[in-house]
Nucleic acid binder design. Structure first.
Lengths: 184, 184
DNA sequence: CGATACATGTAACCGGTTACATGATTTT
DNA sequence: AAAATCATGTAACCGGTTACATGTATCG
């Protein structure tokens, strides 16, 4: 029995909302439309099919709620199996590839994990995130030091923008660790 | 005669390399593999089909170079039509949607535009980029001020990360303007 | 009566990812 | 002889985007 371990960022966002409180696709769309969570999509043509897939995989379960709505709503809730998959996914180590290719995904994982796998795991996550970011920043800086002189000004500036972005994320992660350790 | 105006980030990166110097898919892959440009893809299954599409659209033209290679290389060069499309694309105004959904694309546009549409356009681009970023940061900050108190600590921290990223990009854009104005 | 909110969906399209194929030459 | 380099590609799959479809109920 092979275990599928890959989850798209959108699916992760959907599960992250559903795990906090059972809700319908429409509810999710409203959240996406009114908060920065909308960063993860805003089109029904992505959300409804994604919910179907999650249901087909047995990670969420939809119940038709015909009670008082104009049109029957389908309220999804997490299955135990889905919770397990989600926990495993959230506990995956942070890789270099993640920080290069999937920063969005990492931030979403961070936002969800505290409530699902606990504070200790969150702190560990932030620490490894900071390490990977710092290592990557060092790599980019040395690349820039090597070839920067021979690059046109705009090329150098573009690289600096990238480096600064990663660096500010690393600093943020360090600060987040402190806040979570001292705060509640 | 409708004019297609949409260009994927990968296609833009390909044209950006080819416009600077005619080259083959393999050359491009090497650049992607050894520089941060690799951020825009690294798989032949994306690059070769994308080159074919660009050729089919008449934006680039490939010539087989059978000279001394082990296996014949196909060297692509820009067509006048392709140059026109590229210029028009690079001159498009910066929108709010761009900064939310396509920051990568914006940075690539910045890196390419100086050489293709000139310094003045680049400075104008940076100014409107900074404005859009600052406006979006203000929007996010006011959202956070409204609902931040009622959010869990990790939610607030996640939002702060996003805000800081945009803010550092805005500051970078302002600094880039100064450097490009005073430098060469 | 028309617009808006509620609520869920489908179909066509596009393009990126993964994995594999091909085949010559040079290096170990 | 095996592995790596040069160089280009294809096929299957997946999932996101866009645009459209559907139907009720309430509000102005």
């Amino acid at each position: 029995m092979e275990q599928k371990t890959d989850i798209s960022t959108l699916s992760l966002a959907l599960m992250g909302l559903i795990v906090q409180q059972p809700q319908s696709g429409y509810d999710i769309r409203k959240t996406f439309a009114t908060t920065p969570m909308g960063h993860f999509s805003n089109s029904p043509g992505a959300i409804y099919p994604a919910l179907k897939r999650l249901e087909k995989d047995g990670w969420i379960r939809g119940k038709v709620d015909d009670a008082q709505a104009l049109r029957p709503r389908k309220v999804y809730e997490m299955t135990p199996r889905g919770r397990g998959v989600l926990k495993r996914y959230l506990r995956r180590p942070v890789t270099r590839d993640d920080v290069i290719w999937r920063m969005d995904d990492l931030m979403l994982r961070f936002a969800l994990m505290d409530g699902i796998v606990g504070r200790a795991a969150t702190l560990g996550f932030l620490d490894s995130l900071a390490r990977e970011l710092e290592a990557y920043v060092a790599h980019l800086r040395s690349f820039l030091a090597d070839v920067g002189a021979s690059m046109p000004a705009v090329g150098r500036l573009a690289m600096e923008q990238g480096i600064e972005s990663y660096a500010v994320n690393a600093a943020w992660a360090r600060r987040a660790i402190k806040e979570l350790e001292t705060g509640a």
